Computed example of a mutant assay.
Amino acid sequence: MGLRKRKVVPFRTAGELDAMAAAGAVVGAALVAVRKAAVPGVSTLELDRIAEQTIRDAGAVPSFLGYHGFTGSICASVNDRVVHGIPAAGELLAAGDLVSIDCGAILDGWHGDSAWTFGVGEITEAEQQLSEATELSMWAGIEAMVDGNRLTDVSYAIEQGTRAAEAEHGRAYGIVDGYGGHGIGREMHMDPFLANEGAPGKGPYLTIGSVLAIEPMLTLGTTDTRVLDDDWTVVTTDGSKAAHWEHTVAVTADGPRVLTPRPAGEF
């Protein structure tokens, strides 16, 4: 009887990871361009146009545009919108808004997917800490992207990152229920699904070249969400503000590799 082959998170060659990083760099540049343009009075549709132009100028294609009928090149989720906000000409940013931008690009058949949250002008300390907590949770998950770990070791690390931020900030955060990260490669959303909380030691193994999109979503209140009538926009049920951070990350022999780098000096 042969040994049962252990299940692993899909993996890529070193060359394929480089190709994914090239796609990811386009996403990073688009996010930076959007953030620079995100001032009071600018519409989320204008931000979408800037992202699409940045992506196409790099010879890439927006992966969100047309995805199951989605009309944008970015998801622009403002304040109580968690994810999947549709860019609109009538949605103008205002000072104090908390904005989450999710962006994807395809270059030479490979996908990059990344998101970040930022304030328009001055935001409250609670909102700033919410964004910081979400980013810290993402990096905690990234650090668990090592050979031999299992899928839920990453979930557990993300959750522990959230709990550490709660202790540091002296406040509770809601880990959005039912949403999380995913496999990614020649398609944007691939198995396995990566929860943002849970017990360690379960699921497929990470191996050299395994790739996941790691994307915690936290709120200042509830863990519960609902989808608006547009069938896309996910909002908190209590109206609390939400934040969303994401990087596409690979397991390498030298440790985790972020495949969605941003231009040097940009955060």
Rank of each mutant, 00 (worst) to 15 (best):
Gln128Asn: 12
Leu107Glu: 01
Gly112Trp: 03
Ile142Val: 15
Glu125Pro: 07
Met138Cys: 04
Ser155Met: 11
Asp147Cys: 12
His111Ile: 13
Ala144Asn: 05
Gly161Trp: 05
Trp110Thr: 06
Leu107His: 00
Trp110Ser: 02
Ser155Gln: 08
Glu159Gly: 12
Ile101Asn: 06
Ile142Ala: 01
Ala140Glu: 02
Trp116Tyr: 13
Gln128Pro: 04
Val154Tyr: 02
Gly119Gln: 05
Val154Cys: 05
Tyr156Phe: 15
Gly96Ser: 09
Asp113Met: 11
Ile106Gln: 11
Asp147Gln: 12
Ile106Gly: 05
Ile101Trp: 03
Thr162Phe: 10
Gln160Leu: 14
Glu143Leu: 11
Phe118Asp: 00
Val99Trp: 05
Ala140Tyr: 00
Gly96Met: 10
Ala115Thr: 03
Leu107Ala: 01
Ala126Lys: 12
Val154Leu: 05
Leu151Gln: 06
Gln128Leu: 12
Ser131Glu: 02
Ser114Pro: 05
Thr134Tyr: 02
Ser137Phe: 04
Val146Ile: 13
Asn149His: 14
Ala133Cys: 03
Asp102Gln: 15
Glu122Ser: 12
Ala164Phe: 09
Val146Met: 05
Ser155Ile: 10
Ala157Leu: 08
Ile123Lys: 00
Cys103Phe: 06
Trp116Ile: 07
Ser100Asp: 03
Cys103Thr: 13
Ala115Trp: 02
Ser100Arg: 10
Leu107Phe: 07
Gln128Cys: 11
Ala126Asp: 11
Val146Gly: 02
Asp97Cys: 12
Ile101Ala: 06
Ala94Asn: 14
Tyr156Gly: 10
Trp116Lys: 12
Ser100Thr: 14
Leu151Pro: 02
Leu98Asp: 00
Gly141Pro: 00
Ile106Trp: 06
Glu125Asn: 07
Ala164Gln: 13
Ala115Leu: 06
Gln160Met: 14
Ala133Pro: 02
Gly141Tyr: 02
Glu143Val: 08
Ala140Phe: 02
Ala144Phe: 08
Gly104Ala: 13
Val99Ser: 04
Leu107Met: 02
Ala144His: 05
Gly112Cys: 03
Thr124Tyr: 03
Arg150His: 08
Leu151Cys: 05
Gly148Glu: 07
Thr162Ala: 14
Asp153Val: 11
Asp153Gln: 07
Leu93Asn: 03
Glu122Asn: 09
Gly104Phe: 08
Thr152Tyr: 08
Asp97Ile: 13
Glu143Lys: 12
Leu107Val: 06
Ser137Lys: 00
Arg163Pro: 03
Glu159Ala: 11
Leu98Thr: 07
Glu135Ser: 09
Leu136Phe: 10
